[in-house]
């Protein structure tokens, strides 16, 4: 068990290091930090001072070391455009994105898993067929179009729901939440659904495919030949075996929700990290871009670790010493 976790941690560290390298390389080679920070009228001497102060004259290795050292402490430097520390910007925006992602993850899982299981078990029924058709439409709908159509119907034509922003938020000091007010929830509905649809359809299709695979295995045939009930075969034998491969992919998908939020946030003007990031790209604001990248990498690694531990508790084959 410890060995297993240890190996995973080592892999996670490797991933983080690679991501840090990319983020650092962006700093180094895209644009010139000095001209980004300095104004038009800064003298050459002042520029050289700034260069020295930023440590840009040190060796690349030293700079990379410093970059990582700072990043671990949450220091990503100053935004080129907004002239405020990136860490403050992120801290301000992070709660909005996390709440949005969690709510849509819940929607995707709660709706997606039962639908996937149903379409696999009753794959010839008309309901399962219409679920499959719906899921095909689901993966064919670009996220931003779902948002636009929702806005058109519920925002513009029916005027039931707000079309932008988070609504009223409550400041808890270290966290701002929209989940404590009615208007916060109302604002959440459309963005959360928009973000959930694509993941949900993926989950439905994935679970269906894996479960059909499992239902064809010998041990399911043997279970049937032993006279076990269909209920037990479907749920305690087939479903559990389906979850083993599915859990990794779902974990990854949920992790990617935070990044997918970029699109939703820009459709609904949701004040989260995604919106920050997309603006940063437009302005080539490298510190924000690299900080965002590192944060996403970290969330991914974290989720992956959780998934691995889950995996471990489900599959006994991993538990023996090999």
């Amino acid at each position: 068990m410890l060995f297993f976790i240890g190996r995973r941690l080592y892999q996670a560290a490797l991933v983080m290091l690679t991501v840090a390298l990319v983020a650092f390389a962006m700093f180094q080679y895209v644009g010139d930090p000095v001209s980004n920070l300095a104004g038009q009228d800064t003298t050459v001497a002042d520029r050289e001072l700034l260069r020295e102060a930023l440590g840009l004259n040190d060796s690349v290795l030293e700079q990379f070391g410093r970059f990582i050292f700072n990043a671990v402490q949450g220091e990503f430097g100053q935004s080129y455009r907004m002239r405020v520390p990136v860490s403050d910007l992120i801290a301000e925006r992070f709660p909005a994105t996390l709440e949005l992602s969690l709510v849509s993850a819940l929607i995707a899982l709660i709706v997606g898993i039962p639908m996937g299981v149903y379409t696999a078990l009753r794959r010839n029924s008309w309901l399962a067929r219409s679920f499959m058709t719906l899921s095909l439409i689901g993966i064919s709908l670009p996220t931003f179009l779902i948002g636009i159509f929702l806005i058109l119907f519920f925002g513009v034509i029916l005027q039931w729901l707000p079309t932008f922003g988070r609504g009223q938020v409550v400041d808890l000091g270290w966290w701002t939440t929209g989940l404590l007010t009615a208007s916060g929830w109302k604002s959440m509905i459309m963005p959360a659904i928009t973000l959930a649809v694509f993941q949900m359809t993926l989950i439905v299709r994935l679970i269906r495919a894996e479960m059909l695979e499992v239902l064809r295995t010998d041990y399911i045939k043997f279970a049937r030949a032993r006279g076990l009930t269909e209920r037990s075969i479907s749920f305690s034998h087939a479903l559990k075996n389906t979850l083993v491969p599915v859990i990794t992919i779902i974990g990854l998908q949920i992790g990617s929700l935070i990044a997918f939020a970029i699109i939703t946030e820009s459709v609904f003007q949701w004040p989260g990290m995604g919106l920050l990031f997309i603006q940063a790209i437009g302005e080539v604001d490298i510190p924000i871009m690299s900080a965002y990248l590192l944060l996403i990498g970290f969330v991914f690694v974290l989720i992956n670790l959780i998934v691995d531990i889950l995996y471990f508790s489900i599959d006994p084959r991993l538990r023996v010493e090999r």
């Binding site: 991501v19 962006m26 895209v30 990617s256 997918f260 970029i262 699109i263 080539v284 490298i286």
Partner: peptide, 19 residues
């Protein structure tokens, strides 16, 4: 693969455009 394709595309696009 840890990052959604759309994010990678955004990044690559952003970096190339920056260059």
């Amino acid at each position: 693969l840890s990052f959604p394709a759309i994010l990678i595309a955004l990044l690559v696009d952003g970096i190339i455009s920056g260059l």
